[in-house]
């Protein structure tokens, strides 16, 4: 929390850096970058802690449990890398800001409710779509997958529509 955080990179520079990171990921693994795959495994693990038998019998979580520890996967290491990279970047640029980020007209409690509700929709949506903004939008888009572009159309359409309805959240 320094008084003078360094400016963000220009969208073009940050986009090129992100694109090169994505290209490197394709070269190393044959797959793109992801994020919701980790959340799925985390949810399977949390569910297994709460209700082991029901989770093992669940049609969606079952295969993750039967394969062993759900979190023992490449994507877990990638996500640990994301957290380290974002932490080191924001720290070196003085951009760590410990707070509840919200619009002026929204209280902390309201912000937490919106964050949880939004997370709920995103978690559910990412399982329905089989991916998220990273795995389908970014990585799928880079392979010119039709699935990636269908996802992006839905993402931007709903984003604009819902944002108009909930404009006061971020004002």
């Amino acid at each position: 929390m320094t008084a003078n955080p360094r400016p963000f990179w220009s969208p073009l520079s940050a986009g090129i850096a992100l694109g090169l990171a994505l290209l490197l990921t394709f070269v190393i693994t044959g797959n793109g970058l992801g994020a919701s795959g980790f959340v799925t495994r985390l949810a399977a693990q949390v569910s297994a802690w709460i209700a082991p038998t029901a989770t093992a019998q669940n049609a969606y979580f079952g295969p993750f449990i039967q394969a062993g520890a759900p979190l023992a996967s490449w994507i877990t290491w990638e996500v640990i890398g994301v957290v380290i990279g974002a932490f080191l970047g924001s720290r070196s640029a003085g951009r760590i800001s410990v707070k509840v980020e919200r619009g002026r007209e929204v209280t902390r409690t309201q912000r937490f409710a919106y964050a949880f509700g939004g997370g709920l929709l995103v978690g559910f949506g990412s399982r329905l779509a089989r991916g998220c903004t990273s795995g389908l939008g970014l990585s799928g888009g880079a392979t010119l997958a039709v699935a990636g572009f269908v996802f992006l159309i839905g993402f931007f359409a709903a984003g604009f529509l819902v944002s108009m309805m909930f404009r006061r959240i971020w004002q």
């Binding site: 994020a35 919106y114 964050a115 939004g118 929709l121 949506g125 779509a129 903004t133 839905g154 984003g159």
Partner: peptide, 20 residues
């Protein structure tokens, strides 16, 4: 995939983030 994209767009607008 379309419905999932719509839900993620809606959740992003309300909650402020996507998974990554």
């Amino acid at each position: 995939i379309l419905a999932g994209g719509l839900l993620i767009g809606a959740g992003f607008a309300v909650g402020g983030y996507c998974p990554g």
